[in-house]
């Protein structure tokens, strides 16, 4: 057990799984880097250095740099998975899904069903998401709802380094295609992470705070903001349960509904746009299945229905914040108090 960053946790999962299973290969643009160039080999180790050093241990045969050619190499990952490898492909920014979505949602996701249960497609697409890097509209999106919509795909959103290692290990061992979302603002976040390999089961939410007043369901990096909001609110006597679903597909409906029923008040925090999102999905689920338990309207704290802006002045107000979460919680707690007073 030692302190590791989110980046190190991901690299450790990749390393341990590549050691464990010779069929695991990784591929992506600049995943080692410097190929064919006059300077250093393994020049980048991925655009943010996550895979640096893997080439030295596993060689170019299993650490595959690719041309900037997402359609071809994401499709190749699907084809390789269907024929016996366990590829982990890095789609640098999830915003680039536009040029390779067919390979994910029409091919990898559907092989098993279309082929009558005879296909196994154990591929992982690791991809960066999220705002906060001043990276503007085409490098900052949270497109996990689009993947969550597709039957046949699994979608994981690790909220810290411990979660990242365990969920990536599970993703690599999983026999279904998994889209693994890494928030670019979390790579340097550190915490205690076991040195030994471990897997975190998909579809089992993590309850990170337990409280009586409001249930906050948050995704990915937003879990950390929700925890902070819950800790701040607790000082004023408002206690929150915080639920990190870990995976949006499969979704732990049971824990969400149980915790929603326990408090009767629900806030969903989702960095994605609000329409057809995880936020609206959870709200729909709770309204459908736990309506009778609700004491107040469900509140959604999300980014707006607008592209991610470039200017720091705009981006900072675009992303859901601890203050916005606290305000949402306070609002529905007071709603309950008002109703009781009347």
């Amino acid at each position: 057990m030692s302190n590791k960053s989110y980046r190190q946790a991901i690299a450790e999962a990749l390393t341990q799984e590549m050691r464990r299973d010779h069929r695991v290969v990784i591929m992506g643009e600049d995943i080692a880097g410097g190929l064919g160039a006059p300077g250093e080999d393994d020049a980048w180790g991925g655009p943010l250095g996550v895979t640096k050093g893997l080439m030295a241990e596993f060689g170019r045969e299993r650490v595959l740099d690719t041309p900037i050619s997402e359609s071809a190499f994401i499709g190749a990952a699907a084809g390789a998975a269907a024929t016996g490898l366990r590829p982990v492909a890095e789609l640098m920014f999830v915003d680039f899904m536009g040029v390779c979505f067919d390979q994910i949602f029409n091919q990898a996701a559907k092989f098993r069903y279309m082929f009558g249960g005879k296909a196994v497609t154990p591929m992982v697409v690791r991809t960066m998401y999220g705002a906060g890097f001043r990276a503007a509209s085409q490098h900052s999106q949270c497109l996990y709802p689009l993947f969550t919509h597709i039957p046949g795909l699994k979608v994981a959103l690790p909220s810290n380094a411990y979660e990242a290692k365990g969920l990536l290990t599970q993703a690599i061992r999983d026999d279904d295609p998994v889209i693994f979302f890494e928030h670019k603002a979390m790579y340097d976040m550190e915490m205690e992470v076991p040195d030994e390999p471990y897997a975190i089961a998909f579809g089992e939410a993590n309850v990170t705070r337990e409280g009586d007043d409001v249930t906050i369901i948050a995704f990915g990096r937003m879990v950390n903001l929700a925890n902070e909001a819950a800790d701040n609110l607790a000082k004023n006597g408002v206690t929150c349960t915080v639920v990190d679903p870990r995976t949006t597909s499969p979704l732990d409906r049971e824990t969400i509904l149980e915790t929603a029923a326990e408090t009767g008040r629900v806030v969903v925090v989702d960095e994605a746009h609000p329409r057809c999102s995880m936020a609206s999905d959870i709200a729909g689920l709770v309204a459908q299945e736990a309506f009778g338990e609700l004491k107040a309207p469900i509140k959604l704290v999300t980014a707006p229905h607008a592209p991610v802006p470039f200017s720091p002045a705009l981006e900072d107000i675009y992303i859901p914040s601890v203050a916005k979460i606290e305000a949402a919680v306070t609002e529905i707690v007071e709603y309950g108090e008002k109703a009781a007073a009347e």
Binding site: A72, G75, L85
Partner: peptide
């Protein structure tokens, strides 16, 4: 075509 690149990669790697 991309799928076949993957199948060929499997054959080559294994």
């Amino acid at each position: 075509a991309p799928l076949i690149c993957g199948a060929a990669l499997t054959a080559k790697t294994l």
